[in-house]
Write a protein that binds this DNA or RNA. Structure first.
Length: 114
DNA sequence: TAATTGACCCTTT
DNA sequence: CAAAGGGCCAATT
């Protein structure tokens, strides 16, 4: 472990709040985690995310609802498989708007214990 | 310390 | 709807 930053923990916690069958964008996660404008950091945090936390990184994608990886790459294919396994069907590398995560802010704040 | 990089986002064409 | 340009901020070199 090179550097442990407090930002990452909050990002991981927020991602863990995404229910199965729903997806959220990096910017949305950053915003909910209290880090507006730091969407890129979310991606980095997911890359640093330890396996033990079982962070559902596959439920996080770009704001245009497309995968953040080049189509055809191993990571992209695994993400697509994981999403389909949860009931999120990708059409042309994109998920339906109906599957976007719409969190209840009050409940989310309670779970994250701000 | 300065420059480069990146699992991104928004607005305009 | 897809592509292009500009911006943002932390981590890395």
């Amino acid at each position: 472990m090179t550097t442990a930053n407090p930002y990452y923990a909050r990002i991981w916690d927020t991602v863990l709040q995404i229910p199965a069958g729903k997806v959220a964008s990096y910017g949305q996660i950053a915003d909910l985690a209290g880090l507006p404008g730091r969407a890129r950091l979310v991606g980095k945090a997911l890359g640093y995310a330890p396996k033990e936390l079982a962070v559902p990184w596959h439920r996080v994608l770009r704001s245009d609802r497309s995968l953040a990886f080049p189509a055809g790459s191993d990571t992209a294919q695994r993400q697509r498989e994981l999403l389909q396994d949860e009931g999120v069907l990708l059409t042309n590398n994109r998920v339906p708007k109906d599957d976007l995560w719409q969190p209840d802010l009050a409940e989310l704040l309670f779970k994250l214990k701000y």
